[in-house]
Design a protein around this nucleic acid. Structure first.
Lengths: 254, 254
DNA sequence: GACCGGCCAG
DNA sequence: CTGGCCGGTC
């Protein structure tokens, strides 16, 4: 028996928006500690990892580990039937062949009940090594999205150059070149507009803008994004919702 | 060496929006006095003339005349990477093979640096004769845009009939006819909403609405537009931004 | 069906 | 001024 009630249902809706273009089918691995989703993207270039800890739900109950194999496109269609203010409850019985979704409107005068057929998905479970990164950049997620969108005009790839003084994003294409530099900056009135850089070593790496742009669909989930970089190691792009949830993307450098 | 800093960068963004559908490639003729662009539209029916005087920049420096041949579509893409509040600096070194653009955010924690490859464009320099016009109509630019949009429903062309008492725009098409009359009107509280007509002789001329509609993309540049008309002479449609900049369109009558 | 532009709301 | 939504065009 699995049951998880999420008072801020829009969180789940946004997560699906942030993942569905990258992955078509994936397991929701439900356990006592929460719900995890981990999958390579369809072209096996990027990795997505979502964690929703049990503490983020109320109540949360999961008697035994269950991998719920979901077609994300179908799930997304069903989630579009939930209002943004709805409370969403996920349910699965031990047979594990359907996922139940209940959408309750805030004033409880409307209840939607949906069932999604589940599927068996080969669990290619991916150990992600814990890395000490050489550079950690925290910046407004909207800024990151803007930079990806802007530089995509110039080229298909972007080079990140992180120094103590700032992070510089550079692209070069057929009709010209572009570069955006962000300086560390603390806005006390507006913490979410701040940019910070920690590094043990300056780093220069190049990535596909197509994937970064897909990652930046997570912008509505968090005001800030954190980039973790090391030479010859996949970039980690992390959106933390609060202490009980995150979405992480990994992308190998070019 | 050419360098021009424009504190209101959105001006340049809007100018490109107002020109790019008419002209694909053009020279930015940079000289001591400012930046001029003059080009026939792609079908050689209309003429666009933009002038940005040196006084509108701070600082402005141009050591020698340089025609910077630009693909306006590429330039427009790059300008979309500038924020609406950004300060824009244009730069070209004496080789003149790239145009540099620097976008500085208002609080200076974000800098975009772009380079656009330049091209050689045959300078068909167009002498525009100074004309004494028979009729000069000044009106709200939004009104002009609205009239073009409205009458385009009726026909592909519009007839301007200017009398002392008013200007009448008339179209006639397969399913009906339309006419809009504007009377001179001075709104003291709101100068920009006024309409005025000066004439030495009444004038009746017919023009392509397609081009007038393209001209009216300049509406965001100025609250007022001025129409200069004479029999058998191209219409001049002028948007003056302030004393240091204008965009003018010329269109031969049908 | 996808992309771009215009309009409306926060 | 920015972001999201809707409509139109390619």
């Amino acid at each position: 028996m699995f049951e998880a009630r999420l008072s801020q249902g829009s969180l789940l809706k946004k997560i699906l928006e942030a993942v569905k273009e990258l992955v078509t089918d994936a397991n929701f691995d439900c356990s006592e500690t929460g719900i995890a989703l981990q999958a390579m993207d369809n072209s096996h270039v990027a990795l997505v990892s979502v964690l929703l800890r049990a503490e983020g739900f109320d109540p949360y109950r999961c008697d035994r580990n269950m991998p719920l194999g979901v077609n994300l496109n179908s799930l997304n269609k069903i989630l579009k039937c939930a209002g943004n203010e709805d409370i969403i409850t996920l349910k699965a019985d031990d047979s594990g062949d359907t996922l139940g979704l209940i959408f309750e409107s805030p004033n409880n005068d409307r209840v939607g009940e949906y069932e999604l057929k589940l599927m068996d998905i080969d669990q290619e479970h991916l150990g992600i090594p814990d890395t000490e990164y050489e550079a950690i950049v925290r910046m407004p997620s909207s800024e990151f999205q803007r930079i990806c969108r802007d530089l995509a005009v110039i080229s298909e790839s972007v080079t990140f150059n992180v120094e103590k003084e700032g992070i510089k994003f550079t692209s070069s294409g057929e009709f010209g070149t572009g570069a955006v530099t962000l300086k560390p900056h603390t806005d006390i009135d507006n913490e979410e507009a701040s940019t910070s850089i920690e590094l043990t070593q300056s780093v220069t790496l190049t990535f596909s803008l197509k994937y970064l742009t897909l990652f930046s669909k997570s912008t509505p989930l968090s005001d800030q994004v954190t980039l973790f970089l090391s030479d010859n190691v996949p970039l980690l792009v992390e959106y933390k919702m609060d202490d009980s949830a995150f979405i992480r993307y990994y992308l190998a450098p070019r």
